[in-house]
């Protein structure tokens, strides 16, 4: 069974009274557990919108055409309340964004602990988990530094630690390498790859960067609010290959 499965996903944004943008025009998508998937496409293709819906940041439109379905672990989460979606984001998902988005007044460890707090883990337990997560991204010695004292690459690794700390079912990353030079991009990408391989972490990345796409198991290509290509499942190929062998 797919970890995350969407059907009839539509989203229309109203920019003004007359001007609306149909960002998603009925999308079907399926993410398997343990997959590392890239969503690619030109600007305005709907890839970020899709990620926001998969990440429960926005709900799909309920009343344009057939009823939308969004199954997370088999449960339909398409029409949950804001509170219920927030709770799922806090406990079952991790997020990484292009601009690192750390809280400037908090240290690296405190930034990571925020995610613990929202997931209901507090105090010493949160501290231990945060330090461990920072260790995983190679920043154990930077735990007490403020974001302003860290390089861009380091900040993004803190953000990854924050996404990882609750051991979520899925990590969603929106252009995670968009503001990094190619060396730092490669580092960040290698981290994602490592967590995916070693811990079976499911990861969905939205990216412009074809190098990022190449590093993933599968690339979903979008254009004009629709999925043009669901991509090939490297995992399936691998499994098929193993069966043949």
């Amino acid at each position: 069974m797919a970890l995350l499965e969407g059907r009839n996903l539509r989203k229309t944004y109203r920019l003004s009274r007359r001007n609306t943008v149909e960002a998603l025009k009925g999308v079907e998508v399926s993410i398997e557990a343990g997959e590392m998937v890239a969503i690619m496409g030109p600007s305005g293709s709907g890839k970020s919108t899709l990620m926001h819906i998969l990440g429960l940041l926005h709900a799909p439109d309920p009343n344009h055409g057939p009823a939308p379905e969004l199954l997370l672990g088999g449960e339909n989460v398409a029409s949950l309340s804001d509170n219920a979606r927030t709770k799922i984001r806090a406990r079952r998902m991790g997020f990484v964004f292009q601009d690192f988005n750390l809280v400037p007044t908090l240290t690296a460890a405190e930034n990571v602990m925020l995610a613990c707090e929202y997931a209901g883990i507090k105090g010493k337990q949160a501290k231990v988990a945060a330090v461990e997560a920072l260790g995983l991204v190679g920043l154990a010695d930077r735990a007490d530094h403020k974001p302003s004292e860290l390089s861009g690459g380091e900040q993004q690794r803190v953000a990854i630690a924050r996404a990882l700390v609750n051991k979520p079912e899925i990590i969603l990353a929106d252009e995670p390498t968009g503001n990094l030079d190619s060396d730092r991009s490669a580092e960040v990408l290698a981290l994602f790859r490592q967590f995916n391989r070693e811990q079976g972490q499911t990861i969905v990345l939205v990216t412009h960067d074809s190098e990022v796409g190449d590093a993933c198991d599968r690339v979903i290509r979008m254009r004009d609010g629709r999925i043009r290509d669901q991509g090939h499942r490297a995992v399936d190929q691998l499994a098929a290959g193993e069966a043949v062998a």
Binding site: L57, K87, A90, N101, P104
Partner: peptide, 16 residues
Amino acid sequence: TREIGIKRAIGASRWR
């Protein structure tokens, strides 16, 4: 605003 956005995104409730 952005900081509030990130907090909401990673799971801070409106109440929080």
